[in-house]
Design a binder for these strands. Structure first.
Lengths: 131, 131
DNA sequence: TTCTAAATGCAAGCAACTTGCATTTAAGAA
DNA sequence: TTCTTAAATGCAAGTTGCTTGCATTTAGAA
């Protein structure tokens, strides 16, 4: 918590109650949260403010996007990086396919510089799959 | 092409000009296409029809979704399966995190039944990263 | 060629953002 | 502590990318 407040202040941004609340919700959630999830936990904060606060956190690398293939994004505290199956160049748009995925060695394998990635699985947990 | 027309007809669906055009666009694209991409290649087909045709193709496993983290989805011809970093139960919503990704052994490792996945990387290709 | 269920086009609806602008407020200055 | 002001927020309207309802058109069986 203190660590993130330091990032915020040293980047020249104000520490508002809204920002503290949003940060707190993301920090204490046990799974990545959607903007709506945050709004449900911060009933007095306007959705547009939540939107702008989360985008500021993204910019400051306090949070990262998580895509579960829902029609909205989720966010979680930034820790380290992960990855995908297609490699897309954000500059020329060309794509390189990977036949087998060896996470950490991907950059070496493709010689791409990976800037972003999404890597989420959706399925049934051990309990649910046997019902 | 013939293979997909067979799938379509044997499932009891009509072979319309619109469906042929959309299939042709997806087949000949060198990278996954968005609904808008398809529309741009089939100017006389209504967007709603493209939407329904692609969803039919998804249902028949003729195409699969590809998520590059843009705010729209892309589609490509279905070939085989791949995967993620979070494992989400679509039933109870619980999530299991994977520290290291070993694609094929993921189900064994987590004991989840994987139903869906997204796994795409965005970065710079060898040419672009040195500019 | 005729007939009919299925497919398409059109237009309206919806969800999840995204933005413009007037008001409020954090936090440095006095 | 109070004052000042640029930054942050709330409100409301706008945008994008689907998604759906319904009248018209059409593939393909008879």
């Amino acid at each position: 918590m203190e660590k993130f407040i330091t990032i915020l202040k040293s980047a020249g941004y104000k520490l508002t109650n809204q920002r503290k609340s949003v940060l707190c919700v993301i920090l204490s959630a046990e799974k990545p949260v959607s903007l709506k999830d945050i709004q449900n936990s911060c009933l007095n904060i306007d959705f547009a403010s939540i939107y702008r606060i989360v985008n500021l956190f993204l910019e400051l690398n306090i949070v990262r996007k998580v895509n579960f293939g829902e029609r909205y994004l989720r966010y979680e505290i930034e820790t380290e990086h992960m990855h995908h199956h297609h490699v897309v160049c954000s500059k020329c748009g060309c794509i390189k396919k990977i036949d087998y995925c060896l996470v950490k060695d991907l950059e070496k394998l493709t010689n791409f510089k990976i800037l972003e990635h999404s890597m989420e699985f959706i399925g049934l947990c051990p309990k649910c799959k046997n019902k």
